[in-house]
Nucleic acid binder design. Structure first.
Length: 401
DNA sequence: TCTGGGGTCCTAGGACCC
DNA sequence: TCTGGGGTCCTAGGACCC
């Protein structure tokens, strides 16, 4: 989807069309503008001048999405709001409304599966679609079907998307970026040299900043340069799995299927504080946030019908370093109090000297509520492991003797 | 100019079992 | 005195993605 969050906001606030808008701010100013609306007026009646501007924004955070006019100023996703304010102070900033984006996400995915049922969910604004068995899916290299999908999504939601069509997911993902927004591009196997090899390695889904940096140190900047190295060299320098994978992707090869169904592995909630907090001085505040996070995760689990048995915490210190601790218990749970108790124990095992920036709570090793009962009925008797708590009980037992 | 939130997958060492 | 091989699970950290 094109600038998904921002595009959804523009449906509510059409008066902002054509203006630089970024998503990622706080609620307050926009709520005030809505409250100040005269009787009978709609969101579309809010004067442009009433919206908060980036230059007046003082909070922490990053931009999740920028409209295309904002991108002209060099503003983009994941950029700190402070930096964005320097680049484009006059941009309008709107708060994130994830529930609304999820509603539109469901709608555009429904539209797609009605036309092409083999669809893989890749998050709120992205999917893979298998055209292979869709009637007419091969006409004009897939263009005809892609146009139908674009038109149907636009009619149902008012949103545009860009579609890349290729023999596999790797190339389709790259192709989808060739003609944005609202574009279609078709990449054939024979286009590898002319259209893929000139691209920087970063364009490969799976090569991130670290791998790219290492590749650059070896004078490898483009996918073509990557393809020019032999497999043995890549394996020697990047390891067996990564090296072989890099060789395959550089030659445009990818045989991963389009996966239509998957089970969640973990659920978590985390929050970055408005200001850094100290474990000792801000104990009460931290405790309240901690409890709230546990309740939220428990709610998420219960609403979706999952229970988990690995409970963990995550901290981010003021120096941005991250620490995690987790503990696996011998039964499944989705209970806020139980989660809070185990997570609290995890918290005792992590250094708390530095000021904290973020706190998170995670529940993993998930099972569906129904399945968990079955799993619990067949305990692997001998596989019980010693937990940090057992150390205490051993000590207590020993002292009894 | 400091850098969100929610995820997945991989690696590597250690415990423990057969 | 020197000490296997194969396997699973647990834990912590890190890369990467949307």
């Amino acid at each position: 989807m094109d600038a998904f969050y921002a595009s959804v906001e523009l449906l509510r606030y059409p008066q902002l069309k054509g203006l630089p808008v970024v998503i990622g701010g706080g609620r307050r100013k926009v709520d005030e503008a809505i409250r100040d609306l005269p009787e009978g007026a709609t969101l579309a009646d809010i004067p442009v001048g009433a919206f908060p501007l980036l230059k007046d924004y003082a909070g922490r955070g990053v931009i999740t999405t920028a409209t295309y006019p904002a991108r002209q100023f060099g503003v983009g996703s994941a950029m700190g709001l402070m930096k964005a304010a320097k680049l484009c102070p006059q941009a309008i900033i709107l708060p994130v409304d994830f529930d609304e984006y999820r509603r539109f996400s469901r709608r555009f995915k429904e539209v797609i599966t009605e036309i092409a049922p083999v669809m893989e969910d890749r998050g709120v604004d992205e999917v893979y679609i298998d055209f292979t068995d869709v009637p007419g899916g091969q006409r004009e290299g897939g263009r005809v079907l892609a146009r139908l999908i674009q038109k149907s999504i636009l009619e149902a939601t008012g949103l545009t998307c860009s579609i890349g069509i290729a023999p596999n997911k790797l190339l389709a993902k790259m192709a989808s970026e060739f003609d944005k927004p609202n574009g279609i591009s078709v990449v054939f196997e024979g286009d590898l040299q002319s259209r893929i090899w000139p691209l920087p390695c970063r364009k490969v889904n799976g090569i991130g900043p670290k791998a790219d940096e290492k590749l650059q140190r070896h004078e490898i900047r483009t996918i073509g340069e990557l393809a020019a190295r032999d497999r043995e060299w890549l394996v020697a320098n990047f390891g067996k799995a990564t090296g072989a994978w890099m060789h395959e992707v550089a030659w445009g090869r990818d045989n991963r299927p389009v996966v239509t169904e998957s089970e969640p592995v973990s659920m978590s909630r985390e929050t970055t504080f408005n200001r850094d907090l100290q474990a000792v001085r801000d104990r009460a505040e931290l405790g309240a946030i901690f409890t709230h996070l546990c309740e939220k995760v428990a709610e998420d689990l219960q609403r979706k019908g999952y229970v988990g048995k690995t409970i963990g915490i995550k901290l981010r210190y003021d120096d941005f370093k991250i620490a995690t601790r987790d503990q696996t218990i011998d039964h499944f749970t989705a209970d806020a109090k139980a989660i809070r108790q185990i997570a609290g124990r995890c918290l005792k095992r992590v250094p708390l000297e530095r000021p904290l920036r973020l706190l998170g709570v995670r529940v993993g090793a998930l099972a569906k509520v129904g399945d968990a009962a079955t799993l619990a009925d067949q305990p692997k008797a001998s596989s019980r492991r010693r937990t940090p708590d057992d150390a205490g009980s051993v000590a207590r037992t020993a002292s009894l003797f």
